[in-house]
C-alpha cells in the first residue's frame, strides 16, 4: 500500500471528528473521499499530509509513519493557495529552490505547458481566472515531482463549467504523471467522474460507511447506466434521496 490509514481517530477538544478510519490507497490510485460537510474528510487529508497529528492510530506512506509535511507529497488547496505576490512562473518554480537555474527554468516551462498556461508565465494571479489559478497550483505541486497529491475540494470555488473542464484536465494529467491522488470533495458526481474508488464517510464523527469501486473505464460517459447506478448508490449511502 502506498498510503495506509490504520485505525485513525481525531478529536478537537471534546468533539470527535474521526473514528477508527482504516483504509489503504494503492500506488497510482485515484481515491475520492466524499461525505457531508463537517464529517472530517478534510481533517483526514490534513493528517495524511502531516499538518495534523491524529489523536489515535497512524498513517504511513511507503511504510514510513507520517509526522510532518513533506515535499514528496503535496497538498493542493482551493485556488487561494497560490502566492499572489509571485508570477505564474514564480509560483510554479517555488518548490524548486534547490535546483540549478537552468534545470529549474526547464521544469517550470514543462509544467506551464502541461497545464496549458503558455503565454501567462509573467502574469500575476490577480490577472488570472479562478480556473487558471487552480492550474497554477496543480502545476506548482507537480513540478516538485511528488508521489502523492492531496487535493482538498480543489474545484469547490469554481463555476460548474470550469469545474467540469478542470476535472478532465486533472484526469489527463493524472494519466500522464501517474501520481497517487487523494481527493476530498462533497460533490458526489465529481467523485464518480474521477475516482478509482470512492470512500463514503458518515456524518460527524466521520467513519467509513462504504468504499465504492468505480468500475467504469475513462473517459466516462456521464449518462451511462452504470454511472447513474454508482452515483445513486453513493447518494443513498449518504442518506440523500436524489431529487430536488
Amino acid at each position: 500500500m502506498k498510503v495506509q490509514f490504520t485505525d485513525v481517530s481525531m478529536r478537537f477538544g471534546a468533539m470527535e471528528v474521526l473514528q477508527h478510519v482504516t483504509i489503504g490507497v494503492e500506488e497510482g490510485e485515484f481515491l475520492c473521499i466524499v461525505g457531508p460537510s463537517g464529517c472530517g474528510k478534510s481533517t483526514l487529508l490534513n493528517i495524511a499530509g502531516g499538518f495534523l497529528a491524529p489523536a489515535a492510530g497512524s498513517v504511513t506512506i511507503d511504510g514510513e509513519p507520517v509526522t510532518a509535511p513533506d515535499r514528496r507529497r503535496i497538498f493542493v488547496f482551493q485556488e487561494r493557495g497560490v502566492f499572489p505576490w509571485l508570477t505564474v512562473e514564480g509560483n510554479i518554480g517555488f518548490g524548486l529552490f534547490d535546483m540549478p537555474e537552468e534545470a529549474r527554468r526547464q521544469r517550470v516551462a514543462q509544467y506551464i505547458q502541461l497545464v496549458g498556461l503558455d503565454g501567462f508565465e509573467k502574469a500575476y494571479p490577480r490577472e488570472l481566472s479562478g480556473g487558471m489559478k487552480q492550474r497554477v497550483e496543480v502545476a506548482r505541486a507537480l513540478a516538485v515531482n511528488p508521489d502523492v497529491l492531496f487535493l482538498d475540494e480543489p474545484f469547490g470555488a469554481l463555476d460548474s463549467i470550469t469545474r467540469l473542464q478542470m476535472r478532465s484536465e486533472l484526469l489527463r494529467i493524472w494519466r500522464a504523471e501517474r501520481k497517487t491522488v487523494l481527493f476530498v470533495t462533497h460533490d458526489i458526481d465529481e467523485s464518480v467522474q474521477l475516482a478509482d474508488r470512492v470512500v463514503v464517510m458518515s456524518a460527524r464523527p466521520g467513519r467509513i460507511r462504504r468504499v465504492v469501486d468505480i468500475d467504469i473505464a475513462h473517459p466516462r460517459d456521464l449518462s451511462s447506466k452504470r454511472y447513474i447506478e454508482l452515483r445513486d448508490l453513493i447518494f443513498g449511502e449518504i442518506g440523500l434521496a436524489h431529487q430536488v
Binding site: F51, R80, F94, F97
Partner: peptide, 25 residues
C-alpha cells in the same frame, strides 16, 4: 494560513521562507 502551510509543505529553508513568503505576504 494556507500560504504558510504551502511553504511548509514544500520544505523551503527558513531564509527563503522569510524572503519569499513572510515578507512578501
Amino acid at each position: 494560513p494556507v500560504h504558510l502551510a504551502a511553504a511548509r509543505n514544500f520544505g523551503v529553508p527558513l531564509r527563503a521562507r522569510v524572503a519569499d513568503v513572510l515578507l512578501p505576504a
